[in-house]
Amino acid sequence: MKTPENLKYASTDEWLLVEGNTATLGVSDYAQDQLSDVVFVEITAGIGETLSKGSVVGTIESVKAAADVTIPVSGKVIAVNEDLANTPELVNSDPFGAAWMIKVELTNPKELDDLMNAKAYTEYCETRSH
C-alpha cells in the first residue's frame, strides 16, 4: 500500500495535495484496493461551487461497492478531472496522480489540521485490515 509523504489524508480515505491556498483531492491507494476494479466515476461538484467540509463531491463505483467521495475541508471548486468519466480504471492504476478528482481554493485552511499525515494514515489503515 502506498501513502505518499507529501499528502494529507482523511479518515474517509481521501487524500489532499496542498499547494499554497489550493488543494487537489483524490482517493487513497487503500480505498481503491478496498473497492477493487472501479467501473464508474461521477463527479457531481461543479467548477465555481462552494463546498463545505464533509460535502459529497462524487461517487466511485466498483462491481462490489459504491462509495461517496467527500471533501474533508471547505473550498471553492476551481478544476474538475473530466477524464475520469471515460477512464475510471485510473483510480486503480494511478490513485495519487491521474485519478485526482477536483481542485479547490481553500476557504478555511485551519481545517487541514484535522487531517492525518502519511504515517498516521498508514497506521489507521493497518488497524482496519485484519
Binding site: E61, S62, V63, K64, A65, A66, D68
Partner: peptide, 14 residues
C-alpha cells in the same frame, strides 16, 4: 446482474 453496487444490499440507507 450488473450495476449491483447501487442496490440496497450494498448501499443500504444510501
Amino acid at each position: 446482474l450488473t450495476l449491483t453496487a447501487r442496490e440496497q444490499h450494498i448501499r443500504r440507507e444510501k
